[in-house]
Design a protein around this nucleic acid. Structure first.
Lengths: 280, 280
DNA sequence: TTTAATTTGTTCGTATGTATG
DNA sequence: TCATACATACGAACAAATTAA
């Protein structure tokens, strides 16, 4: 009952490279430790490379698992392990019954977000760190935006501000959405992909944290009014091209917004940062 | 020859929760879309949670796959998919033949690093962005360090500087290692986990990029001499507690170090940042 | 030093639920 | 409705690596 001739002919995994016993005698020949490369990793590499290089774009579809099993000359399980890794890195998405195969999502920052989330949950990063960092990012972004903003940027910011105004005292959801858009536009105007990315991530995390701390509904009208005024001031500074003022306004707005959430000692620490920077 | 009674008694995958047909009639009842939760994800969740909460620490070992297969009541394939995800997120490490099972690595930032690497490879992030961002981070870190540094920090920085001095004109490897240590100590003195983390990652990426651009050996003695002087200046500013000077020195040091690698137009853009900040 | 036991890496076959035409 | 192709999941077996007796 030998279900089949179990030959495993295509066993070509990279671990065939055994560490060479360094019996050459001379001391000046040194070898580095070998980490066996597993089959699924080489599949991940190939697909990841294709996505990074743009040969696979957002919206494309991977071949089905059975098809890849043939193309990569591995078993289905191995293909699936690679799929799981790619999926957890936010590069693809697969769902059962999809005749197209897994969908390519392109490059994203979801893995980055998950990492920060874990560090926050694990108490490696405190709320004060997040607020502090966001003040740095936001003030830098606003300074840059004040210098680099185009007319289109100003128009878009104006629209976002008007949306906030329209939603004040009425629709917190819409207000919050416009708020997020405003900050995104500033980050975009700063013309630095990293500032944009990291600030986005930290902004999201902070919003999640405060959402779990205080009920959203408590964010009353007066809070929104105040926030609106802050944004208007910032936009005015950006429009005038006064980088230092834009940076200062952004920092102070954030501080007023979040200082109530911080422990007193953290609050003084953040104030200390403000003084140390003394940017404005 | 039905090898065995194929019963699949324990088919308990989470997708059993079908989306409820919203036939309640009233419009004010709204349901959110359901994403089927797969078995391996629930395993990942449990283990991830244990690591984040500290019940599983760095150096601990997971049960063997066959043991987990019993504990989670799933097949080995499912356990393995979960392991691959955890491993790709840098939370565990498994190697063949290890009788202890997979090793727990604790929280790390390797996923963060991989994400940034991909974005750089995919041209979503330019070298100018990296240098620019690093100047922001480094100047902030140095300003904070000037304010917050303890005596221990100063001693450690002093030691790192001396190591750099000792290695100048002799050992590039040792010089570079001491250099990295110096920057790490500054970030640590800044007392903000996010600055530390992001600066670390970006620092690494930049080093990799320039290493692939110019041969390391070209980094001659004069370059090391210059770098040494910069670090000495920065340390002096940190010691004196002059935050603005520390920030300015750090920015200028970075600019002198990397401006040669940037395209002329990027160079002027970064200079523009320096002017816009006008911190010192 | 060799051997035996255990573990991970990998493969194959099968069954089941799901989505599309 | 049905057939088809897909992903999810299970289980058994083999291969290779590691450790300890």
């Amino acid at each position: 009952m030998t279900r089949q001739a179990r030959s495993h002919p295509q066993r070509v995994d990279g671990s065939g490279l055994k560490p060479v016993p360094a019996k050459l005698g001379s001391d000046d020949v040194s070898f580095r430790p070998i980490r066996p490369v597993r089959s699924y990793e080489r599949i991940v590499e190939q697909i990841e490379e294709a996505i990074v290089e743009g040969r696979l774009r957002d919206g494309d579809f991977l071949p089905s698992e059975r098809e890849m099993m043939v193309q990569f000359a591995v078993s289905r399980s191995t293909v699936r392990e690679a799929m799981r890794v790619l999926e957890s890195n936010g590069l693809i998405r697969s769902r059962p019954g999809n005749p197209n195969g897994a969908e390519v999502l392109g490059l994203s920052t979801v893995a980055l977000r998950k990492t920060v989330d874990r560090l926050v949950m694990g108490r490696r990063i405190a709320l004060a760190d997040l607020v502090h960092f966001r003040m740095l990012m936001e003030s830098s972004a606003n300074m840059l935006a004040a210098r680099l903003r185009t007319e289109e940027d100003l128009v878009a910011l104006e629209v976002a501000l008007e949306d906030m105004q329209a939603a004040v005292a009425a629709d917190y959801e819409a207000f919050s959405a416009a708020d997020v858009r405003f900050h995104g536009l500033v980050a975009q105007a700063s013309a630095n992909a990293l500032i944009q990315m990291f600030n986005d991530v930290v902004h999201d995390v902070v919003l999640d944290m405060i959402a779990s701390k205080i009920a959203v509904s408590r964010e009353g009208t007066s809070m929104m009014e105040l926030s609106l005024q802050h944004h208007a001031d910032v936009l005015e500074a950006i429009r005038s091209g006064d980088a230092r003022r834009a940076g200062r306004m952004a920092r102070e707005a954030l501080f007023e917004c979040y200082s109530a959430l911080l422990a007193p000692e953290d609050c003084t620490a953040v104030k200390l940062l403000l003084d140390a920077c003394a940017l404005g």
